[in-house]
Every structure is written in C-alpha cells, then in structure tokens.
C-alpha cells in the first residue's frame, strides 16, 4: 500500500485529507510541522509527502529543502492557499513536484498523487 505523509498544522485538515486518502487505498501518516515531517520522513519513508506551507516550528518550504537534502528523490506536493504563489514557486524550484491549492478538491488531490505513486 503506498504511503503518504500528510503534513499540516491543522488537525482538521489532516483528518479530512487522511480520510480521503485511506478510503482510496493509501496508508497515511501525519506530521504537525516541518520538523516532525523530516523526522517522520526518515522513519516512515513515505512514497509521497503532502506538505502544507504555513506551519509553526518549521514551515513547509524549509522542510522541503531539508527533505530533499536527505533524499533527493523525495516526492513532495505542496499544499498551499491562494496568495502564496511565490512561496510555492520557490518550493517547486527547491524540488517539490507539484502543488494543490486549498480548499482541496478530492479529485484533484487523488489525480495529483496518482501521477507520482503509480
């Protein structure tokens, strides 16, 4: 079962996303911030990371850079809100593969993820 690491500081968003993903046959692990994401990335070795940007402790952008250092082949999809265009662009340049804009549309999440996990 493909593993997805869900990184978001809002428990509500995680819960919702996790539900969607588990229902669609993914195994989901969660992290509350970038720091935790890095730790979990190393222990879980997920097939894909869904990374929020604005988070306490360590933001998503920093986390992408760090994870890419650890694993250059890491597949990370940024989860952004409107108005974070520059940050997302920086994240893509830092090695993130794609992005999803909140509010999430279930279909969009699934098709985006599928491309990288197949």
């Amino acid at each position: 079962m493909p593993k997805v690491l869900l990184v978001d500081d809002a428990a509500f968003m995680r819960m919702r996303c996790a539900k969607l993903l588990t229902e669609n046959g993914y195994s989901v692990d969660e992290a509350e911030n970038g720091q935790e994401a890095i730790e979990k990335y190393q222990s879980i070795k997920p097939d894909l990371v869904l990374m929020d940007i604005t988070m306490p402790v360590m933001d998503g952008l920093t986390a992408v850079t760090e994870i890419k250092k650890i694993d250059p082949s890491a597949k990370i999809v940024m989860c952004s809100a409107l108005g974070q265009q520059n940050t997302v662009m920086t994240a893509i340049k830092a090695g993130a593969k794609d992005f999803i804009v909140k509010p999430y549309q279930p279909d969009k999440i699934l098709t985006t993820i599928k491309r990288f996990i197949d």
Binding site: D9, A10, F12, M13, R16, T54, M55, P56, A81, L82, G83, K102, P103, Y104
Partner: peptide, 28 residues
C-alpha cells in the same frame, strides 16, 4: 497571520464561504 490563514483554509474546505471570504480579506 497563521491563525487567520488556517481559518481560511479550513473554512473554505468545509464550504463555509462567508467565513472563508472574511478570513481571506483579513489575511490580505
């Protein structure tokens, strides 16, 4: 900023458009 930002994302997700609209304006 983060609090308002998260409110925006969550409220848009559950489909409370008015809350999303207001938090979006706040965030700006």
């Amino acid at each position: 900023f983060r609090a308002s930002h998260t409110l925006k994302g969550s409220s848009a997700t559950i489909g409370h458009h008015r809350m999303a609209k207001l938090t979006h304006a706040m965030e700006n």
